[in-house]
């Protein structure tokens, strides 16, 4: 089931990529191939990859012969929700990164994440979150001169 979805996505992606390739304007200047030729090969190559996958799907189906493959239904389970929540939480962190600055956004992100994934040890979580944010900010932004977003803080 999963492989079929990958197959469809691959074909769609190849189609979009080939379409985008055809939109690249070309100026023939000494370069006999131009900027389009290589991408065209890649588009075709991706279609070949999709073809290979289709062959593998068919072969796997034949080997199992009969309906032993119950086509494991894709169900959205609780641990998938956890992954989705982490993705959303991290997106909020990225969104806040420049707006609030590295120091504040990182401390809050770490507090929230450790609260959920290292339950019950709140003192340890608060200490690591705050200390990591402060020390890494001082070390990288102040000592090493690495560019880190300052945000709303004056320093």
């Amino acid at each position: 089931m999963v492989d079929r979805i990958i197959f469809v996505c691959t074909v769609l992606l190849a189609a979009v990529y080939l379409w985008a390739t055809s939109k690249i304007p070309t100026l023939a200047l000494g370069d006999p191939l131009g900027p389009k030729a290589f991408p065209q090969m890649l588009g075709v190559g991706l279609l070949i990859g999709a073809g290979m996958l289709l062959a593998e799907i068919i072969r796997a189906g034949r080997n199992k012969s009969g309906n032993t493959e119950k086509a494991a239904p894709l169900r959205f389970e609780k641990h998938d929700a956890v992954v989705l929540a982490v993705i959303i939480g991290t997106a909020v962190y990225v969104f806040a990164f420049e707006r609030l600055g590295y120091l504040i956004s990182t401390a809050i992100y770490l507090l929230v994440m450790t609260h959920f994934f290292n339950r019950g040890r709140w003192l340890m979580n608060v200490l690591t979150s705050v200390l990591f944010a402060v020390i890494s900010y001082l070390a990288f932004a102040k000592l090493l001169g690495v560019n880190l977003a300052r945000g709303i803080l004056p320093f």
Partner: peptide, 25 residues
Amino acid sequence: IPQGILYPLIVAISAIGAYAINGST
């Protein structure tokens, strides 16, 4: 080290490293 602390820290370290390249979110 509890892994529940380790993984969020990896995200923060990645953010430092990536932001340092171009200063762009």
